[in-house]
Design a protein around this nucleic acid. Sequence first.
DNA 1: CGTTTTTGACCGGCGC
DNA 2: GCGCCGGTCAAAAACG
Length: 201
Amino acid sequence: MEGNHGAAQQTLPAEIPPFPSPSPFQPSSPMLLPPLTQDQSNDQATNYLDIDWVYLLSGGALNPGGDQQTVASASSAAANVVYGGSGGNRGGGKSKMGRVSRAKKTVPPRFAFHTKSADDVLDDGYRWRKYGQKAVKNSIHPRSYYRCTYHTCNVKKQIQRLSRDTSIVVTTYEGIHNHPSEKLMEALTPLLKQLQFLARF
DNA sequence: CGTTTTTGACCGGCGC
DNA sequence: GCGCCGGTCAAAAACG
């Protein structure tokens, strides 16, 4: 979000270190959100947490007491994306401005995945509703914005492809779900029932 | 007919 | 203060 454009502009880290090895990550396997360090809300410093969980889950070991990959690298490659505004004027033609007070500017912790997949949106067990799409600078691929459709859940995620390697999809999560995913519950219900049955003895 | 996607406009922050 | 830029809104279309 920190729109520092000029010298080094790159909000999303286009340079998360890639996997050392192809991880056996299946897009259909439900993922639990890993524990996050609650942001300490530094004044204006965006607390950018960028961990390659796929790498971690696939056997990559962290140094104890060590530093995760808190990468906030910014690379600059000047290239202007020329995409003309489409002529067709369609939805969204609003000219009123009395918008209700927006959410405050709190920057929840974010973390990104690199996924090698042919499909943009990977099935993580939650239901997402797309609410935006923007062209990314120095990339021909757009970035898509999704939001969790659960009633009171405000988790968001962004999906974009690397311009260089089209097979790499970067999924950036923002926030923590306050509810279990229906797919997870569906998978867990038989186990819970069996657990209850066994607990009677 | 309800839900999701599409897509230009709008908003707020930041650099100059 | 202006303009760029990334993120969000919301009307209409698309989808089932």
